[in-house]
C-alpha cells in the first residue's frame, strides 16, 4: 500500500508538470482557436536556448530572462507570419500549420545549439525528501515536489491572470467571438501577441523543469505531446480541465506502468495516456470540463 501511494504521488507530481504544458495549449486555443501543435517544440526550444546560453558562460539569472525575451519574440513573429495570414481558415488547416511550425522550431533549435543532449542543473537535488522518509517512510523526490510547487504556482497565476486582469477579460472575449471582440474595440493582434508570449513563458518554465529532470533533448517534444491526452480529458478550453486532466494522466500512467506494465512487457506509458484518452473520447467527446458543442444546420 505504501508503495502504491509512492507511485501515486510521483504520478501526481509529474501530472502537475503535464498540466503546465497543457496550459500552454489551452491558452492559445482559448484566445485564437488554434490548437498549437508546436507547443512541444517551443518547450524544447526554450529549454535548449536557456541551457545553451548557460553553457556559454552566462549565469542562469541572465540566461533565463534572455531566453524569455527570445520566446516573446518567437511568439510575436509566429503570430505575425503564421497565424495572421491564416485567420478564418478551418481549424484543421491551422492545426497543420502548427505542425509545420513545430518542425521549423525543432530544426531551428538544433541548427543553433546542435543535437546533443545537454544537462541542466537548477541546483535542486533529485533525492527523496528526508522528512517524509523519516515520518511516513515514503520516498518522494524533493525535486518533483519543488517542480510541482512551481508548476502549481504558475497554474494558479495563469488562472488569476485569465479571470481577473483586463487583458484576461479581453482574451476571453476574443476566444468567444473574434468579430464581436474586434467590434467592441479589443485590439485583436495585440491580444494574440500577448497570448503567444505567455505561451512562450509557459514553455520556458516547463522546459526548464522537464529539462532539469530528464536532460534537455529532443525527446522533450514527445513529453509535450503527452499534453494532448491531458487536453482530451480536460477539454481544450478549460484551465481547470488542464489541471485535473494532467493529474489524471500523470497518476494513471505511472500506476499503469508500475502495476500493469510488468504483465505486458513494460513501456506502456508511451501509449497508455493516448488510449485512455481515446476511450474517454468515446464516452464524453467534449472532455471533462469542455463546453458541449451543439451543431446547428
Amino acid at each position: 500500500m505504501q508503495f502504491f501511494f509512492e507511485v501515486l504521488i510521483a504520478g501526481l507530481l509529474s501530472g502537475v508538470m503535464y498540466s503546465l504544458v497543457a496550459l500552454g495549449y489551452v491558452l492559445i486555443y482559448k484566445a485564437s482557436g488554434v490548437f498549437n501543435f508546436a507547443q512541444g517544440a517551443m518547450v524544447f526550444f526554450a529549454a535548449l536556448t536557456a541551457v545553451g546560453l548557460h553553457d556559454l558562460g552566462l549565469s542562469l539569472w541572465v540566461a533565463v530572462p534572455l531566453t524569455m525575451a527570445v520566446m516573446v519574440v518567437l511568439g510575436l513573429v509566429t503570430e505575425r507570419i503564421v497565424l495572421r495570414p491564416l485567420v478564418a481558415q478551418p481549424e484543421i488547416t491551422l492545426f497543420m500549420a502548427t505542425i509545420g511550425l513545430s518542425f521549423f522550431i525543432e530544426g531551428l533549435a538544433q541548427a543553433i545549439w546542435g543535437a546533443n543532449v545537454r544537462g541542466l542543473d537548477l541546483g535542486i537535488d533529485d533525492v527523496p525528501l528526508e522528512w517524509l522518509l523519516d515520518h511516513a517512510n515514503m520516498a518522494i523526490s524533493q525535486f518533483d515536489l519543488i517542480a510541482a510547487a512551481i508548476a502549481a504556482a504558475m497554474v494558479a497565476a495563469l488562472a488569476i491572470f485569465f479571470s481577473k486582469t483586463k487583458i484576461g477579460r479581453a482574451l476571453r472575449a476574443v476566444a468567444d467571438d473574434h468579430q464581436a471582440a474586434l467590434s467592441v474595440g479589443i485590439p485583436l493582434h495585440h491580444v494574440w501577441g500577448v497570448v503567444w508570449a505567455v505561451a512562450g513563458f509557459v514553455a520556458l518554465v516547463s522546459g526548464l523543469l522537464w529539462g532539469a529532470r530528464n536532460g534537455v533533448q529532443f525527446s522533450l517534444t514527445f513529453l509535450a505531446l503527452k499534453a494532448l491526452p491531458v487536453l482530451i480529458l480536460g477539454g481544450f478550453t478549460s484551465v481547470p480541465g488542464a489541471i485535473v486532466g494532467g493529474l489524471i494522466i500523470g497518476a494513471s500512467e505511472k500506476l499503469a506502468e508500475v502495476f500493469l506494465g510488468p504483465y505486458v512487457g513494460g513501456g506502456i506509458d508511451g501509449w497508455f495516456p493516448y488510449v485512455l484518452a481515446l476511450l474517454f473520447l468515446l464516452v464524453r467527446p467534449e472532455g471533462l470540463f469542455g463546453e458541449k458543442i451543439i451543431r446547428r444546420i
Binding site: A97, G100, L101, S102, F103, E106, G107
Partner: peptide, 9 residues
C-alpha cells in the same frame, strides 16, 4: 526540418 516546416506553412 526547418525547410519542411516553412514549406508546410
Amino acid at each position: 526540418l526547418m525547410v519542411f516546416g516553412s514549406l508546410i506553412i
